[in-house]
């Protein structure tokens, strides 16, 4: 898939419509961040897709992203170091962008 065929995105690379997301799109967006998606990435991506289906909101900040992962998967994965290693930069933003969720509202 080339950039030309990706669904519409905003100026920060977030999908305009979360429903247009597919796993192939995740691979293309992750590659822009030089990320090769592993099983550990996919587990978090699936968690975020599920979270968005249930709550229609992205975790608004890094802290709440970590909190939500911890609630669902426990301390081992719900901690900021683990998530920062998987999704460098601002983990909530990077992970939501790849998972096709809207931009977290409180991430500067």
């Amino acid at each position: 898939m080339t950039d030309q065929t990706l669904p519409e995105r905003n100026n920060e690379g977030f999908l305009e419509d979360a429903h247009t997301w597919t796993p192939d799109i995740a691979i293309v967006i992750a590659a822009e961040d030089n990320l090769d998606l592993s099983e550990r990435h996919w587990e978090i991506i699936e968690f975020l897709r599920d979270f968005y289906n249930k709550h229609e909101v992205s975790p608004p900040s890094n802290r709440l992203f970590v909190k939500a992962v911890r609630e669902s998967m426990g301390e081992e994965k719900g901690n900021s170091i683990y998530l920062m290693q998987l999704f460098p930069g601002t983990p909530a933003k990077t992970a939501c962008r790849i998972a096709g969720l809207p931009r977290p509202t409180n991430c500067l």
Binding site: F51, K54, H55, E56, V57, P59, L64, K67, A68, E71
Partner: peptide, 15 residues
Amino acid sequence: QKSVEKNLSAAPIFG
């Protein structure tokens, strides 16, 4: 619009 009912269901998860 997004469902405020679904948004609210995240409240206990966030604390």
